[in-house]
Design a protein around this nucleic acid. Sequence first.
DNA 1: GTCCAGGATGGGC
DNA 2: GCCCATCATGGA
Length: 325
Amino acid sequence: MILHPAEPFDFRRTLRFILSPPVLANGRRFEPLLDHFEEGEYRRAAEIEGKLVIYGVSENLSDSSPALRVRILSDGRDSRPLEAVAALVRRQLALDLDLLPFYRLGSSDPVLARLAIHFRGMRIPQVANPYEALVSAILEQQVNLSFAHQAKRALIERYGRVTEYGGRSYRLFPSPEAIARATPQELRRLQISGPKARYIIGISSAVTKGDLDLESLRTMGSAPAIERLCALKGVGDWTAHYVAMRALGHCDCLPAADVGLQKSVQFFYGLRQQPPPARVEKLARHWTGWRSYATFYLWLTYWEDTSWRLALRDEIRRSRKAALP
DNA sequence: GTCCAGGATGGGC
DNA sequence: GCCCATCATGGA
């Protein structure tokens, strides 16, 4: 099946966030846990209508406008799953989103203007399901990302389903049911802290019992969705904003208390010290409607090498000076 | 050894 | 309301 993304769309750049996460300080890389790239094709397992399928997404280069080919690599005789997979891919890669209004904000903000050029066509890749995003975000609270990644991998390997394709293992993120059955002691063995273990199990059982419908948060406005998330034990402002922008498709969320965002804002806007949340919110007034995207692009500048960041900052400074009367 | 990581909670005041 | 200890581990 062929899908046509809204232009501009950059497949490689959008996948880059999923497939080649940053080099850690110790020189290692996170290896992706659930996502794969083989033979020019992005591949991942998903549970569709109770069946575990592996799907693949690749660029259809024969087409003149950007086009993606979506197919099912396993269990492909039934056509119904393909429709569901296509819907998943549309959401995962935000194919229907028109980024041009975001890029036009660059006219009132020189930082955004440069980022829009560099990251043109890149979407915020959406985590396949909000539950996965929420649990991952809790694991990532406070601790360094390398440690969080380790805990997440242990959780997936212990509680997630797995299937084989082409000699490679494809895993699913654990279901809420599987985690709801676990005890805090079991999660402690995976180096997850006691409080975090209780939060994750609590959320999982709320989902299992039907008390918490994370999918419904997608169609809600972002403010009520964030409020609903913050009502959960273990979920604060940062986690709620993160889930909203990474999994619920909300484009105007600003995690103003995020350390990475604050550092990036300090660097590119030339502030003497790291800005407190109120200062970030004030600066972000130019980003209205697209604050998730501005945040995401600012985060990603850390993935480029330091000399690139310095060069970009100088360029922004020069453009500011040139704009002075 | 100390401090900080893509935080959140519950206690004391 | 604000301030603080606590949680877990690893890297600088």
